[in-house]
Amino acid sequence: MIKMVTVDMDGTFLKPTNEYNRSRFEAIYQTMVKQDVKFVVASGNQYYQLKSFFPEIAEQISFVAENGALVISEGEELFCGEMDLELVGEILIFLADLPEVRTILCGRQSAYVSQETDPVFVDYGRIYYHRLNVVPNLSELTEDTFFKFALNVPEEMTEEIVTLFNQRFDGEITAVTSGHGDIDLIIKGLHKANGIQLLQKKWGIHEDHIASFGDGGNDVEMLRHAGHSYAMSNGSQVAKDAAKFVAPSNHDEGVLVIIEQLLDKNQSEKA
């Protein structure tokens, strides 16, 4: 019996066009409501961007945003991580010696980029961060609660940069990749599975009754945690190794295909 569905967005729930089949999902969601199945969006992206995909139901569903650093459930903030300002400063100093890395500093109120950042990258960042402010200097920011760095590097350097940060800041942060040269620096232990566990406590749902969907390295903990975990056929090998099953690709609406099957099985088990 499935009682909670958690979905990554890019490369998973969303098609390559950055959209999803809204009419098909609306029918699925109504069935989920009838069966009291919780729907959770679990993504590395900003909360304000994620909720824009679900304008009609954003206050009814839950979001594990920023790779678990921010958890909003049915309009209520359950958790907000906080990176020590001294650590933020140390990371910024370290980044200053890596000119090939483009940086977004993520906070509760907004995300931020330096005014020296390539405008093309700023436009790219606005796709995932609907609140993105250009500021003179990231190191001078103190008025927000910061919980993540979002980096972009040449794709062939991804693993090298991930290893570099995990070695330099071992025990303080974790560097994870979501593909296409995108890397998140997250507070140690604040991954998607941690956010999902907070929601489990709220609703009294065991992980055996969770179905999770993902495609990248930042989905690994979530996929390992869920009793029913699906890596997308278009996903990375690390996601497939962590998951119990493989779903059809995001191009083929694989998440919706599998949820429909799971809800049908729920119904038959109740009969």
Rank of each mutant, 00 (worst) to 15 (best):
53 F>E: 00
111 A>L: 02
130 H>S: 15
72 I>W: 07
106 C>H: 05
147 F>S: 10
103 T>Q: 11
62 S>V: 02
93 I>M: 01
112 Y>F: 15
97 D>N: 13
56 E>F: 04
121 F>L: 07
55 P>K: 05
41 V>A: 08
111 A>D: 11
71 V>P: 12
115 Q>P: 00
93 I>A: 10
52 S>D: 11
88 V>L: 10
103 T>D: 04
88 V>N: 00
112 Y>P: 09
53 F>W: 05
72 I>R: 05
53 F>A: 05
134 V>I: 15
92 L>H: 10
144 D>W: 06
121 F>A: 03
141 L>G: 04
105 L>Y: 08
112 Y>I: 13
122 V>C: 08
102 R>E: 12
135 V>E: 14
104 I>D: 10
145 T>P: 00
143 E>P: 00
120 V>L: 13
80 C>L: 06
99 P>E: 11
52 S>F: 01
98 L>V: 02
68 G>K: 00
113 V>T: 15
81 G>V: 03
99 P>T: 06
48 Y>H: 14
141 L>A: 04
79 F>I: 06
95 L>Q: 10
39 F>G: 03
69 A>H: 12
135 V>I: 11
59 E>I: 00
142 T>Q: 12
125 G>R: 10
51 K>D: 05
140 E>S: 13
124 Y>I: 04
69 A>R: 01
94 F>N: 00
91 I>P: 03
122 V>E: 12
69 A>V: 01
140 E>A: 13
85 L>A: 07
69 A>D: 04
84 D>F: 09
53 F>L: 11
50 L>V: 01
115 Q>A: 11
59 E>N: 15
65 A>Y: 02
79 F>D: 06
71 V>F: 09
62 S>P: 04
79 F>T: 05
38 K>C: 03
143 E>D: 15
62 S>C: 15
67 N>K: 07
113 V>L: 10
57 I>N: 12
39 F>S: 04
46 Q>W: 01
46 Q>M: 08
134 V>H: 07
122 V>F: 06
